[in-house]
Design a binder for these strands. Structure first.
Lengths: 115, 115
DNA sequence: TCGTGCTATATCGCAATTCGAGGTAGTTGG
DNA sequence: CCAACTACCTCGAATTGCGATATAGCACGA
C-alpha cells in the first residue's frame, strides 16, 4: 500500500485498520477511501487497487461492511461501503491491537538500553 | 512471530528490525536471540524457528550479519551472529522507518477527529 | 536404560496478502 | 478522436511467517 515511503511488508495487516478508520467518517466508495488514506497519511500510504478492493471485499464478507451500488448520473457507477456494528467493533479491536503491537515493537527495538 | 497476541500479518516486516535490535547487544546465537525477543516483549513476540532462521540467513546474505560456528563443549553446536557495520546502518534505517511508519498509522487510524 | 524434555539448528510446504499489470467503462476536454 | 481521469474488478508473481518435521546432544528421573 505504500506510496513509496515504506516496504510493503510493514504495511501488511494494517490495511483493514486503515480502511475501517476512514469509513468511520461515513458511507464512502472505494476510490474515495483510497484518496482519503492518501491525504491523511500525507501521501505516505497510497493503496493500490490490487490491495484495496480485495480487502474491502474481505471486510464485507466478514460482515464488517455493507455495500450498495449507486447509479451515478455522472461518471462510472460507485459501490458505497458503510460500517456495520460489527465493523465498528472490529475497528475498535484493531485500534487497540495496533496500539499494543506498536508499543511492544517500541520496547524491543527502539527504547533505551536493555539489561 | 507472535506468541499469541498478534495477527501474523502485523508482524511481517518487523522481524529484521527485531533481530537486528537484539543483536546490538553483541554476538548472539539464534536460540538466544529468540529468547531475548520473548523476554523483551513480555512474551508477546515468540519467533518460531520457521521465521527466525530464514530471517537470520537473509540478513547474513545481505551482509548485515556475519556468522561463525562454535564448537560447544556441552550441548549442541551453536551459530553465533554479529552485526557488521552495514548491519548497524540497516538497524538505524529500520528504526527510523518504523518510527515514521507507526506515526503515519497513528495519524490515519487513531488520532482524533478528521476534517 | 529408556523416555521425556529442553537446547539448538535447519528445511519444507502452506497460507495470507500486497503489488503490478491488465481489463472494462463512463465522462470530460483538447 | 484520443488522452486523462474516475471507478470498478481480477489475475499471477513475490514475499514471508507459521506449523510440522528432522537431526542431534545433554540432563533428569523412572
Amino acid at each position: 500500500m505504500p506510496g513509496r515511503s515504506f516496504r510493503g511488508e510493514l504495511v501488511r495487516g494494517t490495511t483493514p485498520l486503515l480502511l475501517l478508520s476512514v469509513l468511520a467518517d461515513g458511507e464512502l466508495y472505494g476510490y474515495d477511501i483510497a484518496q482519503r488514506i492518501r491525504a491523511r497519511s500525507g501521501g505516505a500510504f497510497a493503496p493500490s487497487e490490487g490491495a484495496l478492493y480485495p480487502s474491502l471485499h474481505r471486510l464485507e464478507a466478514e460482515g464488517a461492511l455493507v455495500a450498495r451500488w449507486s447509479r451515478s448520473d455522472r461518471g462510472p457507477r460507485r459501490r458505497y461501503y458503510r460500517l456495520t456494528d460489527a465493523g465498528r467493533g472490529l475497528l475498535e479491536r484493531n485500534r487497540r491491537e495496533w496500539e499494543a503491537f506498536s508499543g511492544v515493537v517500541e520496547a524491543v527495538a527502539v527504547s533505551e538500553r536493555h539489561a
